[in-house]
Amino acid sequence: MLFRQMLDRQTSTYTYLIADLEQKAAILVDPVLEQVERDLKQLAELELTLRYCIETHIHADHITGTAKLRAVTQCQGIVPVGAGVDCADRFIQDCEHLSMGSIEIKAIATPGHTDSHMVYLVNNTHLLTGDALLIRGCGRTDFQSGDAGILFDSVTQRLFTLKDEMLVYPAHDYRGFSVSTIGEEKRFNPRFVGRDRQQFIEFMAELNLPDPQKIAEAVPANERCGNISTPDYTI
């Protein structure tokens, strides 16, 4: 399995490239519009055919690159079921498996950050946690149908029950981290360690974070799979 983590510095967003090198087939998880050219270059250099673009959720801080990647590569766009999107090629639900050669991806429903958030378990070793679980943090719960209590349940009951050595790859990082493990987050994540469900709800309610800078444009654009009026990319 080829596995690459790629960063959009402006929004601190990680995009993940996963590929079966024998089939020369690839998947991108959480692509970013401004990084489409980078992603297409990676695919071309590695002689990979993009099969799928998968979203962990409807993002509020960046516009997805799925629409442009789909136009160029004819890949399929996949979003979590219930996300309120009608432009996707496929909707993935809890415990559903996506297979591509030697790559096996299991969807794990982890609502709370949004009401239709998915985490993706890749080959039972790499856990792409989206915004549900960050390295020493978690996604906010104060918009997009977020619910702190539900997020607490998702993380503690669905993710923290996985094996401790499971590698954790989040959708964002704002402090220079790239990877963690379930065991580390259970021991050191300050948002969960020492807090019960009610204490977590109260803590999240007191964050008072500013809205993401791109929320007004990102959410409606992502509900259209990233379709906006911009020139087409070519390779």
Rank of each mutant, 00 (worst) to 15 (best):
Y120R: 07
L121G: 02
L121K: 10
V122C: 11
V122A: 05
T125Y: 06
T125L: 11
H126A: 12
H126G: 00
L127D: 11
L127W: 04
L128M: 11
T129G: 05
T129N: 06
D131W: 02
A132L: 10
L133N: 03
L133A: 07
L134A: 12
R136T: 11
G137D: 10
G139E: 01
G139C: 02
G139F: 01
T141A: 10
T141K: 11
T141I: 08
D142E: 10
Q144L: 13
S145N: 15
S145R: 14
G146M: 01
G146P: 03
G146V: 01
D147C: 13
A148G: 11
G149F: 03
I150T: 15
I150H: 01
L151N: 00
F152A: 06
D153V: 08
S154I: 04
T156V: 12
T156Q: 01
Q157Y: 09
Q157N: 14
Q157C: 11
Q157I: 05
R158F: 00
R158S: 04
L159M: 03
L159N: 11
L159I: 10
F160L: 08
T161M: 06
T161H: 01
L162M: 15
K163Y: 05
D164E: 06
D164R: 09
M166W: 06
M166C: 01
M166K: 00
M166D: 07
M166E: 02
M166Q: 05
M166P: 04
L167I: 13
